[in-house]
Write a protein that binds this DNA or RNA. Sequence first.
DNA 1: TCCTAACTTGGACCTAGTCCAAGTCAACAC
DNA 2: GTGTTGACTTGGACTAGGTCCAAGTTAGGA
Lengths: 138, 138
Amino acid sequence: MSDLLERLRGRGWRLTSQRRAVAEVLEGDHVHLTADEVHARAVARLPEISRATVYNTLGELVSLGEILEVSTDGRAKRYDPNAHQAHQHLVCSGCGTVRDVRPEGDPMAALPSTERFGFTVTGAEITYRGLCPDCSPT
Amino acid sequence: MSDLLERLRGRGWRLTSQRRAVAEVLEGDHVHLTADEVHARAVARLPEISRATVYNTLGELVSLGEILEVSTDGRAKRYDPNAHQAHQHLVCSGCGTVRDVRPEGDPMAALPSTERFGFTVTGAEITYRGLCPDCSPT
DNA sequence: TCCTAACTTGGACCTAGTCCAAGTCAACAC
DNA sequence: GTGTTGACTTGGACTAGGTCCAAGTTAGGA
């Protein structure tokens, strides 16, 4: 993630303590935090950081392609730092936990041109749903 | 759709004019309206219908499995009356139009058990993204 | 060390959706 | 047809998630 900060500097970003705090919160695998959760964890590092800045920073990271925006439930969007490796999501219908998964094959290949209605198809997102081990009935 | 009303009556539903109006609005193919759009069209048929009733009715239809809830953009949820035929969605990144599509194969089969992390996988939703003919550059 | 455009802040505001107490009415019994 | 009643509807208050903005602060180049 510190190379993330370097990349951002290369793109003309000012490296403020707020942006550093947000970037640090987003380190790790299978991280899928809501904006509010990112804010709560950023506050632990930098007590005076505001919600607006967290939203701004997340939005900028998304438009630079450094993180992904995922909406798994129609409620709060989640932010996924694993933007440099193609993957899909497996969501627990019980507790909402999200795992990154890598299905076989290319999902776009499964859509024949007769099913494209003249669209130029650029991507496909798959959300697998199920119950995680903790939420499975016994 | 009128057999929908019959099915609902069979399940003990009262057939009110409000529920009839909502069901009528949801007739057709490739219909993916937001709750507010459903409300606006229902008002055209029944001027005094309230937002709360539209939300209630949509929620009940979803939990009965008669319509599907789709969130294609992390904003307002959309409601899809095509609940009795497996399908996926193709969304225009320009104007937000949604089409129902039927890709080949079973998306769940593409997720090997080593990628399931002990989850019991029950379903998979695919959102294809692209540009519709109207939004494609020239 | 100074300067300034970029960044941050808090609070007002907005949209989508939920909740609730009071009023209405579909459908059943007679 | 009439009466009864519990299911349904209503409007308005409320909540969650997110956006906007004018004023204040600051990173980093000169």
